[in-house]
Computed example of a mutant assay.
Amino acid sequence: MFGLIIGRSRGAFGIAIILSFALIYFLPAERKLKKILSAVISVFLVLTIAFNANIIQKIDSNFKNHDNLAARDRVWNISLEAFKLYPIFGVGNANFKYLDAFKIKNSVESRGEIFDSEKYHFVGHSHNIFLSALAERGIVGFIVLINFMIAWLFLLIKDYKRIKINHLSQMLWGGSLSAFIVTFGAGFVNSTLHHEHALLAFIFLSLHLNYLKKNHLDS
Rank of each mutant, 00 (worst) to 15 (best):
F2M: 06
F2E: 12
F2D: 12
G3N: 07
G7A: 14
R8S: 13
S9Q: 10
S9C: 09
R10Y: 05
A12W: 08
F13N: 05
I15W: 01
I17V: 08
L19S: 02
L19D: 01
F21A: 12
F21N: 05
A22V: 10
I24S: 08
L27G: 03
P28H: 01
P28K: 02
L33F: 08
K34D: 08
L37Q: 11
F44V: 10
V46G: 03
T48Q: 03
N54M: 02
N54W: 08
I56G: 07
K58R: 14
K58D: 11
I59E: 01
S61V: 15
S61T: 15
S61D: 10
F63W: 11
H66M: 14
H66C: 10
D67Y: 02
N68I: 15
L69V: 04
A70W: 07
R72K: 04
V75K: 01
I78Y: 08
I78C: 07
I78G: 09
S79M: 05
E81I: 13
L85N: 04
L85W: 07
L85A: 07
Y86I: 13
Y86L: 11
Y86C: 10
Y86V: 15
P87Y: 00
F89E: 13
G90M: 03
G90T: 02
G90Y: 00
G92D: 10
N93K: 13
N93V: 15
N93S: 13
A94P: 14
L99I: 06
L99A: 07
D100V: 01
A101G: 09
A101D: 14
V108C: 04
E109M: 13
I114Q: 04
D116W: 07
E118P: 14
E118N: 14
K119D: 15
Y120G: 15
H121N: 14
H121L: 12
F130Q: 04
L131I: 10
A135H: 01
E136I: 01
I139Y: 01
V140L: 07
F142C: 01
I143H: 01
V144A: 07
M149Q: 09
A151R: 06
W152K: 03
W152M: 00
F154H: 08
L155W: 05
L156M: 04
D159R: 03
Y160S: 12
K164C: 10
N166R: 06
N166H: 05
H167E: 10
S169P: 06
M171W: 01
L172H: 00
W173C: 00
W173M: 04
G174Y: 00
L177C: 05
A179D: 00
A179L: 02
F180D: 00
I181S: 03
V182C: 06
F184L: 02
F184A: 00
G185S: 06
G185P: 01
A186W: 13
H194A: 11
H194R: 07
H195S: 15
H195T: 11
A198E: 09
L199Q: 09
A201S: 13
L205R: 01
S206A: 08
S206E: 05
N210I: 12
Y211W: 13
N215V: 15
N215T: 15
H216A: 14
H216L: 09
